[in-house]
Write a protein that binds this DNA or RNA. Structure first.
Length: 509
RNA sequence: GCGGGUGUAGCUCAGUGGUAGAGCGUCACGUUGCCAACGUGAAUGUCGUGAGUUCGAAUCUCAUCACCCGCUCCA
């Protein structure tokens, strides 16, 4: 399919029509950045998470040195002690007040803007400029000189300079913005922290303020010692978690891609610093291979190693695993595999225990003492679910059912359907026991209503890989047909062979 | 956050001031012989929401919400 917004609109319509994804609170006009999964979408996303948990935690890939390693899971609370977010850097670093200019459409950090004004004049105009920018300051000086009807620079004794943050907001209507010539274009400073705030307990004051977690990772770090002490794990090992996280995005967009409430599938893998590069490359490659194993074609999947200028301050290396969604010309991040060094354990060691090395471990063999390095493959469950939907969407106008969803069998919400060709001549009686047997093991549907073509078409839109049809021949020789979703081809198999057929075709679920 | 666009049935949309519509889908009954068949019938609408103008508003005005596009942002 062409990669464009028209394709995306078709996908969105199909998801609504067939019950994959609904807008949250739709009957009340919706709410931006929040989405619900319908019956098919819920099965799909559950399959995504189950596949991840099985392949990464219960049966992880073999390590780079050919040895197996341990993976264990945790399920942490969404609301944590606010000190967690101070230690992690989420509170301090990202609450900068910003001002917008209504005229120039520019946005400035309020603490990086100063104003020039005439000394002693409490009613005159003030001229804003970027504090560290001489050009901007001289521009403001010229405007002040013009305002005072004298030549620039204005004598220093007639000028007062002060930070924008020291100007009361009710006087902002006297300020000329850094890129304008008019007064009153700057908004009052506004906080842009992306964390959702709430209050714990009945009193809503500063001491009860808490945050909905903006990532699941910190719950893992906070429990690092608990897991070490209770689980007999030895480095190298990983702790995994699937759970909701919340970011109060300024501008949610692109369907479910940037939601304010979303689910993460995160691993924090702890290893010896000397081996951390090896493990980083191992997880990067393992995670790419995982997406490919679930049917994401490699030309839509683009790993992108971040440049040094792009890396967060805590990260030694990071690869974004990106996918080419129909809503964008550029690939978008599904997962980040980050080499975080010992940043997180050091930060929590220092904040919670008073010293950076509080979470150091001792290597049994070498007696070496070190704070483990962390490799973090952090995947978005909703993002991959959306990628799986986009990847599955096919349109072929030559088919009776032009739209069909080619989900990988492991991800398909419904694995099989059982249809009597027509609802008479004993066909339903043969079909029903087959259906009852299949549904013990696989999500399966039975349908005897309406024409066979319409039933196939419905299953095509749901992405069901196989349809078993009982026809007139079934009564005579005990065979039924299997219809393949992807090419609409059919073959006959003995009706007793249905379970074996599905086991062979679907493999490990 | 800024600018532009769109909002009418489950989906796609028509409806420019005077009775709320179509196609597809859904459901029921009949029929059925492998790809959204056919016949008959049925259900489904806060016309995104709230104000205003008007004798009368899906239609005009304002506000607001949601979505799409382009910027901005994205620890």
């Amino acid at each position: 399919m062409p990669n464009n917004s028209a394709t995306m609109e078709k996908i969105v319509a199909l998801c609504k029509r067939r019950g994959f994804i609904f807008q949250s609170s739709e009957i009340y006009g919706g709410i931006g950045g929040f989405w619900d999964y319908g019956p098919l979408g819920t099965e799909l996303k559950r399959n995504v998470k189950d596949a991840w948990w099985l392949d990464m935690v219960r049966n992880p890939p073999t390590g780079p040195d050919g040895r197996e390693f341990q993976m264990v899971g945790v399920d942490c609370s969404i609301i944590m002690n606010p000190k967690v977010w101070e230690a992690s850097g989420h509170v301090g670093g990202f609450s900068d007040p910003m001002v917008d200019c209504r005229l120039s459409k520019s946005r400035y950090r309020a603490d990086q803007i100063s104003v020039l004004a005439e000394a002693g004049n409490d009613d005159g105009q003030m001229f804003a400029f970027a504090s560290e920018d001489e050009e901007s300051e001289s521009r403001a000086m010229k405007l002040l000189a013009k305002y005072l009807k004298c030549s620039a620079p204005v004598p220093s004794e007639r000028v007062q300079t002060k930070p924008l943050m020291d100007v009361p907001t009710d006087q902002f209507n006297r300020i000329v913005g850094p890129d304008t010539k008019e007064v009153g274009t700057l908004t009052e400073p506004r906080e842009f922290n992306l964390m959702f705030e709430t209050f714990v307990g009945a009193l809503q004051d500063s001491t009860s303020k808490a945050y909905l977690r903006p990532e699941t990772a910190q719950g893992i770090f906070a429990n690092f010692k608990n897991v070490m002490d209770s689980s007999r794990v030895k480095i190298p090992f990983g702790i995994a978690q699937i759970g909701k996280a919340f970011r109060n995005e300024i501008n949610p967009r692109n369907y479910t891609f940037r939601s304010r409430e979303f689910e993460q599938m995160e691993i924090e893998f702890f290893c010896n610093p000397k081996e951390s590069r090896m493990w980083y490359e191992f997880w990067r490659d393992a995670r790419i291979a995982w997406y490919e194993s679930l049917g994401i074609k490699s030309d839509n999947l683009k790993p992108r190693e971040q440049g040094e200028d792009e890396l967060a301050h805590y990260s030694d290396a990071c690869t974004d695993i990106e996918y080419l969604f129909p809503f964008s010309e550029e690939t978008q991040e599904l997962e980040g595999v980050a080499h975080r060094g010992s940043f997180d354990l050091n930060a929590h060691g220092k904040a919670a225990k008073g010293k950076e090395e509080a979470f150091a471990v001792i290597d049994d063999a070498t007696k070496e003492r070190y704070v483990p390095h962390v490799i973090e493959p952090s995947a978005g469950a909703d993002r991959f679910t959306l990628a799986a939907i986009c990847e599955a969407y096919h349109y072929d106008e030559n088919r009776a059912s032009p739209e069909f969803m080619c989900f990988h069998p492991r991800l398909a919400p419904i694995k099989a359907a059982v249809f009597p060709l027509v609802a008479k001549d004993g066909m339903p009686e043969i079909a029903e026991p087959i259906y009852r047997e299949i549904k013990k093991h696989y999500p399966c549907q039975f349908d005897a209503k309406q024409s066979i073509g319409k039933r196939y078409a419905r299953m095509d839109e749901a992405g069901t890989p196989f349809c078993f049809t009982i026809d007139g021949q079934s009564k005579d020789d005990g065979t039924i047909t299997v219809r393949n979703r992807d090419d609409a081809s059919q073959q006959r198999i003995p009706k007793e062979g249905v379970g074996r057929f599905l086991a062979d075709q679907l493999g490990q679920l």
